[in-house]
Amino acid sequence: MTQLLKIQQGVLSKNDLLAQGLRGRFREAGVFVTNWVSSPGSGKTALLETTMRQLTDRGHKVAALVGDLATENDAQRLKRSGAEVRQIVTAGTCHLEADMIERHLEGWEVDQFDFLFIENVGNLVCPSSYDLGEDLRIVLLSVTEGEDKPLKYPPMFHSADLAVITKIDLAEAVEFDRSAAYENIKAVGPQLRILETSAKRGTGLDDWIDYLLQAKAGTV
């Protein structure tokens, strides 16, 4: 005879629980944590490199965890800013999970950091389901990708707190339709704040750094 056993449990409850633990730990340590998500090649590492350098110059202690399927190239590149950087090689896994973050924090005293940046694996699908204990989820969209990306990947854009349009120096060359991009971002994530940057030319970086500082202070 067929019987029914009712249970109610989130499939990712283990990850969610770990992420909650991390969030508490980060709060206590006074470190502001951001989780960067985007498609591959949107310019996460370039923006991160200049962000870490600028924050370091202003006297903030910063660290980064960088996720990639393979290679340690991004971590090597980011270490040039003089900050603490660790690579998370996921060996094929298409996203970061809370336990990977926890493991890679070992040996670090997180309370010595003001900012911890987590660069997720370049992928606009899978990372959206995994809470990493971050304060802020930042989705990057480069002008070369097409203005309809938000409509193609609603779960990711909806789960983010901030959208950064990158490579804005190329906007004209690729005939980037700014109003369409804004409309699409706002359609999927009405709560999203939008900033524009060019890591190469320095455009919009002051606003971006100010935003991070204000977000850390809890004033945005």
Partner: peptide, 18 residues
Amino acid sequence: PEMIHGKELEISALEYEE
């Protein structure tokens, strides 16, 4: 912006044979 349902990814029941 306020979502009530739509992010669910949860097991609700098991069916089994006695």
